[in-house]
């Protein structure tokens, strides 16, 4: 699944949240998005799956525009924030629902959840707690698991590591690596923390105030480069 962003601009008042003239994410690519607060990471992801209306521009997944056809919904798993969960359901009920609307049978859902069990770290299932009463970290586990439930071809995760406990962070990384390697899932992952994305993504794009500043292949060289950027971000240019 190839994702192509064309001339995407989103403006709030006189503030440009995202301005990406052109960006091509190849099929099966691990695409990491980094940047400081307000860099436009979330806005870009939301625009990709038609959750907000850009001022200009369009996003195509495999050639079909996400704002014209709703085709993408059937093969795109995403978790952006806890507002996309149904708070008054038990996690199990939510999984059943997501599975059912993707046309997955009950038995398959059970199997799938069992496979994802390590991710929950024993916290989410069988707790008789509604999703809205779970902690942020556990809500995130539910959201990520629901996004993975139906074997998506495209996976979009906004800050998946934030609020997660260390064990789950490590397991999630392993799981994502496996998905990318075995199934060729195209992944879009954002993070504040470069280290988290470099392990999973071979390509890292740096956003600054909505603009694409760096687009690099992951290597130890480029990592240093990025660290230097973040250490100096916000400093006057003349300091260099």
């Amino acid at each position: 699944m190839e994702i192509s962003i064309q001339n995407l601009i989103k403006v709030y008042g006189d503030y440009t949240a995202v301005n990406i003239p052109e960006l091509l994410i190849h099929s099966g690519e691990g695409f990491g998005l980094v940047g400081n607060n307000g860099a436009g990471k979330t806005t870009m992801f939301r625009a990709v799956i038609d959750l907000l209306e850009p001022n200009t521009g369009c996003v195509y997944i495999d050639g079909s525009a996400t704002n014209a056809s709703e085709q993408w919904k059937s093969f795109t798993g995403s978790y952006l924030d806890e507002n996309f969960l149904v708070g008054h359901l038990l996690p199990e009920e939510y999984f059943d629902f997501v599975g059912a609307i993707h046309g997955i049978g009950d038995a398959d859902i059970k199997a799938k959840i069992e496979m994802l069990e390590p991710l929950f770290n024993g916290e989410v299932l069988g707790g008789k707690k509604l999703i809205r009463d779970l902690s942020k970290g556990n809500q995130k586990k539910v959201g990520i698991a629901a996004a993975l439930l139906f074997d998506p071809k495209v996976l979009i995760l906004d800050e998946p590591y934030a609020n997660l406990d260390p064990s789950t962070q490590i397991r999630l990384k392993e799981l994502l690596k496996m998905l990318k390697h075995d199934r060729g899932v195209t992944m879009l992952i954002s993070s504040h923390d470069i280290n988290h994305v470099t392990e999973v993504c071979e390509r890292i794009v740096l956003l600054e105030k909505g603009n694409l500043v760096k687009d690099i292949r992951t290597s130890s060289e480029t990592l240093k480069d990025l660290e230097k950027y973040f250490a100096g971000a916000g400093m006057p240019e003349s300091a260099e």
């Binding site: 799956i49 959750l51 709703e70 919904k73 995403s78 996309f84 969960l85 149904v86 609307i101």
Partner: peptide
């Protein structure tokens, strides 16, 4: 409706 926007349900 937000929880359903990213799922395969028609707008």
């Amino acid at each position: 409706v937000q929880p359903y926007l990213h799922l395969p349900i028609k707008r």
